[in-house]
Design a protein around this nucleic acid. Structure first.
Lengths: 114, 114
DNA sequence: CGAATAATTCGATCATATTGGAAATATGGA
DNA sequence: TCCATATTTCCAATATGATCGAATTATTCG
């Protein structure tokens, strides 16, 4: 991942409304959620939601597909893991102690998907 | 971690200059780097750097200590891992496939710190 | 004390992002 | 075709953030 992409993703997620949208989509999984349902769940105006979905989409954090009248949005899980990988890319170049707290995350991920 | 803290961290990192600073500090490890050295390495003005260090500091991503005339900055590794944990917190609630790409990251972290 | 170095704070300008109302586009069904 | 639903686009007002020069604080050393 390039630094530019990472900045785009991070700044897209560095917004209360967009982080809420993204986390909702992560929970929903590949099935995704229709824009209208997101708006109702998070109680935001449709046009604000659309603008924020556009930002997340341009950051390659989410994808969309049309189903009838609705447009279904889903989190892009490979992009998410790419971002996580980028953030911890150099974590051990001279700083092994980062790995201790990381162990807890690793354990969680492994417990989740044995 | 609260959502508010995560938003602060993500928006702090969602800036090209600040992400460069943070990654430099992550590489440097607990030893840290003096503000002046950061400015010279990244070729930025001291006052711009100071403003960006302040943002990272308020987001609890870095810490600082004085050593003589210099102020040494270091990445806060526990905060970083807290953020990573938050981002993948609900990754498997209905979306197990996120765990496949995560495996690579996990493997990297484990290879690094056996 | 006075000079030099290190870093921050101040203040103004400029650019970018966010918000909400209103209108426009696209789809499905009567 | 006509209408209702779903979503996006357009637009203007506002707010927030970034940048840079200049001045200020803090520390060390002669």
């Amino acid at each position: 991942m390039e630094s530019k992409s990472a900045v785009n993703m991070l700044s897209a997620l560095g917004h209360e409304g967009r982080l809420a949208i993204f986390r909702l989509l992560v929970k929903a999984g590949p099935v995704g959620i229709a824009a209208g349902d997101i708006a109702r769940t998070l109680e935001v105006l449709p046009n604000s939601l659309s603008a924020n979905l556009n930002v997340l989409s341009h950051a390659d954090l989410i994808t969309s597909r049309r189903e009838g009248r609705s447009i279904i949005y889903s989190a892009d899980f490979s992009a998410m893991s790419g971002l996580l990988g980028f953030l911890m890319e150099d974590c051990c170049h001279g700083a092994p102690q980062i790995c201790a707290p990381l162990g807890a995350i690793v354990a969680k991920a492994e417990a989740c998907c044995p």
